[in-house]
Design a protein around this nucleic acid. Structure first.
Length: 428
RNA sequence: GCCGCUGUAGCUUAGUUGGUAGAGCACCCGGCUGUUAACCGGGAGGUCACCGGUUCGAGCCCGGUCAGCGGCGCCA
C-alpha cells in the first residue's frame, strides 16, 4: 500500500499499512508524531503510549530521520496533519535505525551537491525526477505517434568530429577513442533505412564552461528525418514542446508546486511560437541595448536579454553561414545563410534546440568542409552516406536537461540532473 | 584560461580597532496528552582551509598554496 493511495476519504476508519522512511519526528509526552514518506507522498503517523506495546513505543522514539519503517494502524481524517490524514499506529516495525542524517534545514547548494546521493530523497529532487520521467515518457509517446523509430547510436567514437578540443579522450586497447558529442551523424546513417529516427542518449563535452546551463555530460534528444525541410522541422518541434508542456501540467501539477513553478508560465507555452530570421533577432537585441555586430553570435548573455521578456519560445532561423558548422545546408536562394534554426526558451532560459537541414549533396558537403579547413578524409563514412541515394533531410538536437530546467523553472541545470557532471564535479 | 568573491563545529553562520572562539539547526540527557522543519532546561562538539611572515599577542594584517562559488571567455 502506498501513501498516495490512502490520502483520501476512502481510507477513513480502515486499517492501513505503509512502508517507508521517517521524514520528520516529534515527540510530545505520551505522543510521538512521525511523518513517513514513500515514493508517492508523506503521511503523519501518531504513536500513542498504551496503544502500542511499550517496546514499540520506545522503538518509535528512537526512529531517527530516514529510518526505514513499517506501520499499521487506523486511518483518519485530521486537518492538523500535514497531508490531511493520519494513521493511528497499532503496530510498528523498524527495518533500520538510520544514522544521524547530515541534511538539516540549513543547507547550501554546494553541500547538497556533495551529498547528492542522499539529497535525491528530498521532496524537491523527487519532484524533479518525476517531471524528468514525464518528459522522457512524453518524448517517446510523441515520436511513436509521428512514426519515428528510437535507435541506439554508439557512445565511443573514433576521431571523426569537428575541432577536437572539446572531446573527452579515453584509452581504447592502445588506440584513442572519444566520448560522443552528438549522435547526429549516426542518426543520418540510420535515416537511410528507417527514414525518421531519434535517440535519447548522453552527449559529452569537455568544455571548461562555468555557467548555469552547461554540464559535461547531458541527456541529448536528437532526431533526424528524410524528406523534411527546415520549416517543417520547426513545426514538429513546436508541436512537441507544447505536447510535453501539456503533459507536464496534467501529470505533474503537484511536483510543479513543490518546486514553486508559476503554472501560468507553463500554460503560456502554446502554438504558434515566435519565428524570426536571424537578422530580426539581432534587431531585437539592439532595441534592448545590446551592442551587436551584423554577424554576432548569440552568446548566453544575449540570449538571456532577448528572451527574458518573452512569454513563449522563439525560433531563430537562417543564421549566417559562417557562424554555423559545415553540415548545415545553405539556402539555395541566399548562400550567405543556412537553413537552420535554434529554439530559444523564454524567461531568459535561452537555447534548448538547435537544428536544420543537412547538406545532402556530396560535392557540396566536401566543398564546405574544405572551406572550413577540414579534411573530408576524416569524415569518410559521413561523406560516403551521400554516395548512395542521398535525400534531403533535417534534424535537431534538444538538451533534455535544459528543457526540464526551463519547464520546472529551476535556476541551474545541475538541479535538473540526478548526478550532474561539471568541470569541477565528478562525485558522487 | 581570465577577473572577482569566499573558506570559522556535521550543516547555516556571527566575530567590532589585532587582546580568553559565539549562536541557530542537527546530535545526547531530562521535561511536556495534538505536534506542524514544536517548545522548555541541560550537555557534548573547534588544527578558525593549509604553509610561512609581521607582532608581546593573529580568526582578523601581509605573502603563498589549495578548494569552492559567481561572472566572462570557450561552447554542433
Amino acid at each position: 500500500m502506498h501513501i498516495g493511495d490512502i490520502l483520501n476519504d476512502k481510507c477513513v476508519d480502515t486499517i492501513v499499512s505503509v512502508r517507508g522512511w521517517v521524514y520528520r519526528s516529534r515527540e510530545s509526552g505520551r505522543l510521538i508524531f512521525t511523518v513517513i514518506r514513500d515514493s508517492t507522498g508523506i503521511v503523519q503517523v501518531v504513536v500513542e503510549k498504551g496503544v502500542v506495546s511499550s517496546e514499540e513505543f520506545e522503538l518509535a522514539k528512537r526512529a531517527t530521520i530516514e529510518s526505514s519503517i513499517e506501520v499499521e494502524g487506523k486511518c483518519s481524517k485530521e486537518p492538523k496533519a500535514v497531508t490531511g490524514y493520519e494513521i493511528h499506529a497499532t503496530k510498528i516495525r523498524i527495518y533500520q535505525i538510520a544514522e544521524n542524517f547530515p541534511i538539516t534545514k540549513d543547507k547550501s547548494d554546494e553541500f547538497l551537491l556533495d551529498i547528492r546521493h542522499l539529497w535525491l530523497r528530498s521532496r524537491e529532487m523527487t519532484a524533479i525526477m518525476k517531471m524528468r520521467d514525464t518528459i522522457l515518457d512524453s518524448i517517446r509517446d510523441f515520436m511513436r505517434e509521428k512514426d519515428y523509430h528510437e535507435v541506439d547510436p554508439p557512445m565511443f567514437v573514433g576521431g571523426m568530429v569537428e575541432g577536437g578540443s572539446t572531446l573527452f579522450e579515453v584509452p581504447y586497447f592502445g588506440e584513442k577513442a572519444y566520448l560522443t558529442q552528438s549522435s547526429q551523424f549516426y542518426l543520418e546513417a540510420f535515416m537511410f533505412s528507417l527514414e525518421s529516427v531519434y535517440t535519447i542518449s548522453p552527449s559529452f563535452r569537455a568544455e571548461k564552461s562555468r555557467t548555469r546551463r552547461h554540464v559535461t555530460e547531458f541527456s541529448h534528444y536528437e532526431a533526424e528525418a528524410a524528406w523534411v525541410q527546415n520549416q517543417q522541422m520547426m513545426d514538429l518541434e513546436e508541436e512537441l514542446i507544447v505536447f510535453i508542456a501539456q503533459r507536464l501540467l496534467s501529470s505533474n501539477k503537484e511536483e510543479l508546486e513543490v518546486v514553486k513553478r508559476d503554472l501560468n508560465k507553463v500554460k503560456a507555452i502554446e502554438k504558434p511560437f515566435y519565428r524570426y530570421r536571424y537578422e530580426k533577432v539581432i534587431d531585437i537585441g539592439r532595441q534592448k541595448g545590446l551592442q551587436l555586430s551584423d554577424m554576432a553570435d548569440l552568446g548566453e548573455k544575449e540570449e538571456r536579454a532577448i528572451t527574458e521578456d518573452f512569454d513563449k519560445p522563439m525560433f531563430v532561423y537562417n543564421f549566417p553561414t559562417q557562424l554555423k558548422p559545415f553540415y548545415h545546408r545553405q539556402d539555395p536562394e541566399d548562400p550567405s545563410h543556412v537553413l537552420n534554426h535554434d529554439l530559444l526558451a523564454p524567461e531568459g532560459y535561452g537555447e534548448v534546440i538547435g537544428g536544420g537541414e543537412r547538406i545532402w549533396d556530396k560535392d557540396e558537403l566536401i566543398s564546405r568542409m574544405k572551406s572550413d579547413n577540414l579534411n573530408p578524409e576524416d569524415y569518410q563514412w559521413y561523406v560516403d552516406l551521400r554516395s548512395y541515394g542521398s535525400v534531403p533531410h533535417s534534424g535537431f538536437g534538444l538538451g533534455v536537461d535544459r528543457l526540464l530546467t526551463w519547464l520546472a523553472g529551476l535556476d541551474h541545470i545541475n538541479k535538473a540532473i540526478p548526478f550532474p557532471r561539471t568541470i569541477r564535479r565528478l562525485k558522487p
